[in-house]
Amino acid sequence: MKMIGFSEFGGPEVLRLVDAEEPHAGPGQVRIAVRAAGVNPVDWRLREGQVLGAHPIELPAGVGLDAAGVVDEVGAGVEGVRAGDFVFGEGRNTYAEFAVLSAWARMPEGLTFEEAAGYPSVVETALRVLRETGVAAGQTLLVSGASGGVGTAVLQLARVRGIKVIGTAGAANQDYLRGLGAAATTYGEGWVERVRALGRVDAALDLAGSGVLGELAALTGDPAKVITIADLRAPEFGVRFSGVAGSVPDALAEAVGLIARGELHIPVERAYPLADAAAAHIDSQAGHTRGRRVLLV
């Protein structure tokens, strides 16, 4: 089969479309013929050799956690799914023609493979960090870097829970954030004052890793009320780094319900052919994403 892999840590240029042996479903797993794979920031961080403590890698390695596709192998002990079912979920080395998933759910009706591939890790992360902030209905959550996949999910999940949101993003994404129910403002010089003008901040999320942890701690009045998923300097500021995933099956089950009720939609900003994985990583690292980027297989 064809897959994207790398044999050394580095920039996007280390990614190669290579021939590899097909994986097979073990106990408690399913294998899918991949139709689309989600592109996550953790993918390029691992490619660069970051966060290896949480995600050990043996080179040469494949890439990718999220995918949507058609089940074609069912491992021992797996029930409720069979060959031919359309599923989306999380596994490993999903930038490939075939991938093994360890967590999955049936795709909600009306969702395309391209759209479905953008949900798994994003929804799990959004649910987790929203829970970890402890923010409640009627309170206000500040989301720094709010227009990407996780931000898009957080804003919608917060709205369902009655939580007010202030979101920061680039000038081009202000209407996008407002459409998701957030009070929006731009980052850059003077952004702290602009946030203060929008109201009190009870908790904050850093989703972009843009060096704003000190300001977020000042806005909340307590660094313990700030969570980042993107800035490894969190301990220097007394801020929590959230990097340990919760239950992906539970997150997928909740996502299915939210999607079915029309309460969650994560748009795909751009889809790339599998062979263009390096371009997808370049664009992901550049930021300013509105929704998700995916690879088509």
Rank of each mutant, 00 (worst) to 15 (best):
A182E: 01
T220H: 04
A136C: 10
A217P: 00
L232M: 12
L155Q: 04
A224R: 14
E193C: 12
E193V: 10
G209I: 05
S144G: 07
G167T: 09
A197M: 09
Q139V: 12
A158R: 13
A208V: 10
P249Q: 14
T152S: 14
T168I: 08
T152D: 03
A137G: 15
K225E: 11
V192F: 11
T228A: 02
L219W: 05
G167W: 04
L207F: 11
D231T: 01
A183D: 13
P223G: 05
I227G: 00
L180M: 15
G181F: 03
R159I: 12
A184S: 14
G167F: 07
G145M: 06
D202H: 12
I229Y: 00
I166M: 12
G167Q: 09
D231S: 05
V160T: 13
D222G: 15
G190R: 14
D175E: 15
D250I: 09
G238R: 04
V195R: 01
L180G: 03
V143A: 01
R178W: 07
G211I: 09
Q174W: 09
L142Q: 00
V165W: 02
V135L: 11
A245T: 09
T168N: 04
I166H: 01
A184G: 09
G221L: 11
G181M: 02
E193H: 13
A253Q: 14
V135K: 03
G221R: 04
A203L: 11
V135I: 14
G138M: 12
L216E: 00
S144F: 06
R159M: 13
I163P: 04
G148S: 06
V244L: 15
D222T: 04
T152G: 09
G138R: 12
L232K: 13
V143G: 00
T186Q: 14
N173I: 04
G188W: 07
G151K: 06
A217E: 04
S210N: 13
T140G: 07
G138L: 12
E215H: 02
V154S: 07
D250N: 11
V165L: 10
Y176F: 15
Y187L: 07
G179I: 11
R240K: 15
A182Q: 04
T185C: 15
V212D: 00
D202N: 14
V192D: 03
E193M: 14
L177G: 02
T186W: 03
